[in-house]
Design a protein around this nucleic acid. Sequence first.
DNA 1: GGTGTTTGTCTGACGGAGCAACTATATGCC
DNA 2: GGCATATAGTTGCTCCGTCAGACAAACACC
Lengths: 165, 165
Amino acid sequence: MRTDLDDPRFTAIGLFSEAIAGLHARFAAQFDQHRISPVEFEVLMRLARSPGNHLRMTDLAGQTSLSTSGVTRVVDRMDRDGLVGRQACPSDRRSSYAVITEAGLAKLDAVLPGHLELVQQWFIGQLSPGQLDQMLDSLRTIRDAVNPCATAGSDEASESVVPTA
Amino acid sequence: MRTDLDDPRFTAIGLFSEAIAGLHARFAAQFDQHRISPVEFEVLMRLARSPGNHLRMTDLAGQTSLSTSGVTRVVDRMDRDGLVGRQACPSDRRSSYAVITEAGLAKLDAVLPGHLELVQQWFIGQLSPGQLDQMLDSLRTIRDAVNPCATAGSDEASESVVPTA
DNA sequence: GGTGTTTGTCTGACGGAGCAACTATATGCC
DNA sequence: GGCATATAGTTGCTCCGTCAGACAAACACC
């Protein structure tokens, strides 16, 4: 007996995926204009929002859904481009911090207004205030269910919980 | 003057991204067990839901947010694995159809029940029926805004457009 | 019917990201 | 102090997807 291919739940999850994919595509177009990739943007954002404008490599990986080696390479590239730097961690010589530079902050400054406009235009502005509240509520429920660690805002003790079933 | 890094709109879009990323991670874990990648799963789904179990390469690309060359490679791999096949298009000799094979349908059969369970567990079941309706409404609004073409070839608007040969 | 343009697909070269292996440092236990 | 184990980060290898370009077929226009 075959599973019903037209189960409305497939439509639902498809809608979810397509909506975010569409948004990401819009964002990517603007990032391209600034010669920056979506991951690089995310790195800049995470660093800029962190106390001291820096984050340990591992923590950065945890916040970006990148592997630690992925973070190493991204930071390599951005270091070459002058957007971030590396700093030794005084208390643990195995660790190193990624720090956003002035140039990185400037780049973020250049990108953010346009990005915010796009967020407003294609996401926030598409919904009524009530709809938006409802939506954020639901999104938070799902996010917390699926990724309980993410609730930790900046530097929370990572539980090292890997969602492998 | 720098853009406010704590603008609630950033939180909102972040929530959106993290929620779907978490869901995709859950799905990926199950796909791994079946030795299939998310894109391959999507290809199987799209083909299985298409009339005649086949789709032109270009249309497949349009439905999967993959480039046409990306589709060529995915279909290459899946062809090698016996999950799909290629069929010449009688009316246009430039085109070729990707067709899902019996083995492909069987694979889908093996994956789908578990996948549906995950969709239920981490998405549908997290929300009340009312919340879900609201959410789908909002998602549809956004999807239609950012990706107006999707309505054309998409499954859920199957009544609106018959794929032109 | 010919000629130029467009369309559909495939291929080569390239870059990004993950896994596994490796190095170096830290920690626990005796 | 000395050894076993855990943790942080980097590197080699490989896969996957994109872009640009090549090629074939269809179409438009005369």
